[in-house]
Amino acid sequence: MKNKLRQYDTLVFFLFISPWIIGFSLFFLVPFGTSVFYAFTDARLPGAVDYNFVGLSNFVDMFNNPIFSKSLQNTGYFVIVGVPVVTAGMLLIALLLNMNVKGIALYRTFYYLPTLVPIVATVIIWRLVFNSEFGILNAGLAKLGIGKTDWMGSEGLIKPVIILLQVWISGSGVLIFLAALKNVPKHLYEAVLIDGANKVQSFFRVTLPMISPSILFVVIIQTMYNFQMFTEALLLTKGGPNYAAYTFVYNIYKSAFTDLKFSMAMTQSIFLFALISLVTFVLMKLSKRFVYYEGEK
């Protein structure tokens, strides 16, 4: 009798979670399986019915494509340079907003606003600000005697401009750091103050270790995001100029929708998944040495 009841309750459990089971199977397992399957075929179109198995040749072709290596380099830049710059930017702003002055709440609101701007609007705004002829930025720099700069049109500048855009919309990370800074116990600062530490020393000896779990969290989220950098590059300059902002995911998109090589796009997606998993794993492992969790010995 009791067993029957238990079985019935398990059935009810599955009824309750059935929306998730359907959603997870249909929109996660099926696409995931599809990519693994297609990666070994030569299917060109999304609805293709006639295709051949080609073994590993998609992977070989992928590595032989110069645009693929270019896109990998560009994405590498956004991860290796972009992530530290954006994270440091967030931390710096959080430290500013953590200062104890009147009216700080109002400042906090303004820093968060750009994060809530839809990406297309962000891109419109950046085109207005960075416009080389009529933009406010070049006008301001001209006052300082700096000549006209073609921000969006130069290969060397487009990646820094995109990273700057990421800092502009980094409000979520700032909020996470701000919450972490508020949780650092005051008595620790008093303790190092008695030891004769100055502001900079107390930042490195107290603040950084105490908020290190949040730093790890933000770094991992930002790393995953920058590996997948796409929309910004697509909308700002269509990956240009001369492939300078042609990111890995932009390449996946082009393989599928311009070259109509869906099997190649899936091969690249699988490679990206492996790469992100590996890097996240390494980050987690390395972090054990740097991250301090309260309550640990």
Binding site: F28, P31, Y38, P46, G47, S269, I276, T280
Partner: peptide
Amino acid sequence: IVLMTLMIPPSILMIPSYVLFTK
């Protein structure tokens, strides 16, 4: 598994999802 799906980069599913929705 619910929590794990939060960690999966969405862009790797972009193309296969498009195939699914086409079908």
